[in-house]
Amino acid sequence: MNLPASGRRVLVSGASRGLGRAVAQAFAANGDRVAVHFGSRADEARATLGSLEGAGHVLIGRDLSDPVGAAAVVDSAAEALGGVDVLVNNAAVNVRHPLAETPYEEWVAVWQRHVAVNLLATANLSHLAARRMIDQGGGGRIVNIGSRGAFRGEPDHPAYGATKAAVHALGQSLAVSLAPHGIGVASVAPGFFATERVASRLTGPDGPAILAQSPFHRIATASEIAAAVLWLASPEAEWSSGAVLDLNGASHLRT
């Protein structure tokens, strides 16, 4: 399949800030055109759009927990960019809900929200984007943002850990089914990395323990994770389809 190394049409979900912004910036710097999706942070998403190198990028705002919204996102991206070659499933929710402290009604609502956004939206976007890639006939790439927590457990965020484990499994299933169409599917499983959302934890009393999780005694930058996503979406990465790439600075080693 003739997947180009640059000039691709890329959809990044949840790209208003943090890792999504870094991923969008990495693809734009590579010479690709990017559809920047956001759910509710319109101002931050516009800042992401304004930070991208090159031209032809587009902003798309919809709620991915609604299947109709997910379809509108892919349709809008394909219309604005002229198709979709790469999908990065980054949008996710992560709400603290330890079982012993969380009332049942809240527990149910939190799980439903995590499943709707982290898993079902990822599945729906993957279906919609992959069908477009198949129709285009040039192959493509899907890269899912998973988590180290899928392997080591998330006691304060169990729905997050469980849905990210499901995202890894989904990616491996799709890697097998979509390979005949020249579409590679892989996932990354980051550990702790710096974003606006976790800045207060790093400067607070938990900061030293977080840094000590890795023998490098630091956490990753969002650009380090984005660089791995960019490579997994490259033509050279086809043989990594089905992989779940650990990006945690040796803070958790799988056997």
Rank of each mutant, 00 (worst) to 15 (best):
A226L: 08
A212R: 09
P205E: 14
A199Y: 00
S223V: 10
A220R: 09
D206V: 15
I225S: 02
A199H: 06
P215F: 08
R218V: 01
H217F: 07
I219N: 01
I219C: 10
R218Y: 03
P208K: 11
G204A: 13
D206R: 11
A199G: 02
P205S: 14
R201N: 12
E224M: 08
S200R: 07
A220W: 01
L211V: 05
V198C: 03
A226Q: 04
T221N: 09
R197L: 02
S223E: 15
A222H: 10
A222R: 11
P208R: 07
L211W: 00
A220T: 06
I210T: 02
E224V: 02
I210Y: 06
A228C: 12
A228R: 04
D206C: 06
F216I: 14
R197V: 04
P208M: 13
A209C: 11
A227C: 02
R218Q: 11
T221E: 15
V198G: 00
F216H: 14
F216A: 15
I225W: 01
A227H: 07
S223R: 14
A199D: 11
I225K: 06
R201W: 02
R201H: 09
I219W: 03
D206K: 11
A212D: 15
S223Y: 01
A212K: 05
A212G: 10
V229S: 07
P205W: 10
A226W: 07
P208Q: 09
R201P: 06
P215A: 10
A209R: 09
Q213E: 15
P215V: 07
T221D: 13
A226V: 03
P208N: 05
I210W: 03
A220I: 03
A212W: 03
P205V: 09
S214N: 03
L211H: 11
A228L: 02
V229T: 07
Q213A: 08
S214K: 04
T203Y: 00
A220N: 13
A209I: 04
G204F: 09
T203L: 07
A228K: 04
R218P: 01
P205Y: 05
S223M: 03
F216L: 15
A228M: 14
V229G: 04
S223G: 04
H217D: 14
S200F: 04
L230S: 04
I225Y: 00
T221F: 01
A220F: 05
P205A: 15
L230C: 05
I225V: 15
G204C: 05
I210C: 10
A220E: 13
F216Q: 14
S214C: 02
I225Q: 07
V229W: 06
R197D: 13
A209M: 13
A209T: 10
G204N: 05
H217S: 12
P208Y: 06
V229H: 05
E224C: 09
V198W: 00
P205Q: 12
P205R: 12
H217N: 14
P215E: 09
H217P: 01
A220D: 14
V229L: 06
T203K: 11
R197A: 15
G204W: 08
